[in-house]
Write a protein that binds this DNA or RNA. Structure first.
Lengths: 121, 121
DNA sequence: CAGATCGGTAACCGTTAGGTTACCAATGTG
DNA sequence: CACATTGGTAACCTAACGGTTACCGATCTG
């Protein structure tokens, strides 16, 4: 099950939100979620398969933690829905030439396009 | 069906992506998606209920278009999972304003906006 | 060792999701 | 008007989802 399908379930979203505040054991999560422990366990397995959660075994306990990299597909998808997915330089056209010229002149570091960041007066 | 569940289906994600490039009719979308037109129609209804898609009636045709504000719950959820809730997510930059506005506007359904903010006493 | 705790898995069950075909209303066009 | 086009809906079916209880192994602890 992919990340989208995994996050379609409100219980799993709660679990992910919960784990964003720190890792937890299955019993802890089950104690907070009104449904049975096996149900929580299976939700965690789904989240694990989606790459959203990972576990560390500590003795007989299993500490689940959020795996934020698993959120990448979702974030990427949202980003791709932006009106202009490309960098729109047109707004800065006026500055653009000067920026490039300055970069050429200096040639020191690579500097490249940090855009409007370095504006020391 | 909320936005998360709506986006859980790959066909619906395709439809949303497709509509991000411009509106389209049901027959057009059906012609691109290998499944039957009624199936597409129902997917569009689901997307509409989730606030992800809207339609303009033009004669006997119905032009579907992407409703980006419907993405607010998802973007908001992702933002809430950030390690430190700074508003520095370049990925979600464009959505940010729409997120805030949509949260104000909609507030209907479950929306999930409160995300675990209300700490237990 | 005996027993409690932690956690995964299997079996079962009701509900829902998503596909199909068939049908219907509404609108454009010869 | 006759008919094609567009698109929504209903009925139906299969597969999957998500819950439960029961059971098992593994690990701490008296």
């Amino acid at each position: 099950m992919d990340a989208f399908a995994a996050l379609a379930d409100p219980v799993r979203r709660d679990l992910v939100s919960r784990l964003a505040n720190g890792s937890a054991r299955v019993v802890d999560l089950a104690g907070e979620h009104a449904i049975s422990r096996p149900a929580i366990s299976r939700h965690l397995r789904v989240l694990g398969e989606a790459g959203l959660v990972a576990a560390d075994d500590v003795g007989r306990e299993r500490h689940y933690r959020l795996e934020r990299t698993g959120l990448a597909p979702v974030a990427d998808y949202l980003a791709a829905l932006e009106p202009q997915p490309r960098f729109d330089d047109s707004v800065l056209d006026g500055l653009d030439l000067e920026v490039r010229r300055a970069v050429r002149d200096r040639t020191g570091t690579d500097a490249i396009i940090h855009t409007t960041t370095e504006e020391t007066a």
